[in-house]
């Protein structure tokens, strides 16, 4: 599979990530999956629920809150996610995947990313270096949940 985003959609991810720096940003990719290509039609920025630490901790506790925060963790509110998904379905769109930023870290998935992923979805990661958007990559979890495979990003 490959994921297809146009220049404007890529730019909206970059702008969102730069705006949220030094925190992690996150959002959802809506569109249609047609055979071997996921064609993105909408990029929807969402709130990083880690900024609301009490609610985030209730939903998905951090193991080490002393070292984990909104600067290196993101969480999408499942209720918000369910609403976005319902709305997408009513317009015959699917959730194709998600994006998030890695402030001052490479655009490579972490073990934490892997442990919180499902197969098939595209996980786009954007590295933000000192506030400027840098490398962007896309990943898909392997069937056995052991690793991520890189996914081709098509213009």
């Amino acid at each position: 599979m490959a994921i297809q985003l146009n220049a404007q959609q890529l730019q909206s991810i970059r702008s969102h990530a730069e705006r949220e720096y030094p925190n992690e940003c996150c959002g959802v990719l809506l569109g249609r999956a047609d055979g071997a290509v996921k064609e993105v039609s909408e990029v929807v920025p969402l709130k990083n629920l880690r900024l609301d630490s009490a609610r985030a901790q209730e939903l998905l506790p951090l193991e080490d809150p002393g070292r984990e925060s909104e600067k290196n963790r993101f969480l999408i509110d499942p209720l918000e996610q369910m609403m976005v998904e319902k709305d997408a379905r009513s317009r015959e769109l699917d959730v194709l995947g998600y994006y998030h930023s890695h402030p001052d870290h490479p655009a490579r998935p972490s073990i934490y990313d892997r442990d919180h992923a499902w197969p098939w979805y595209s996980y786009i990661i954007l590295s933000v270096e000192r506030g400027k958007a840098a490398e962007m990559t896309s990943w898909v979890l392997s069937e056995d949940r052991a690793h991520f495979d890189p996914e081709l990003m098509k213009p």
Binding site: E24, L60, M82, Y112, D113
Partner: peptide
């Protein structure tokens, strides 16, 4: 019944 993932992730924790 809906099954909804908490979409979560983040970068490697810097060694402090």
């Amino acid at each position: 019944i809906s099954i909804v993932p908490s979409i979560a992730g983040g970068s490697m924790i810097r060694c402090i």
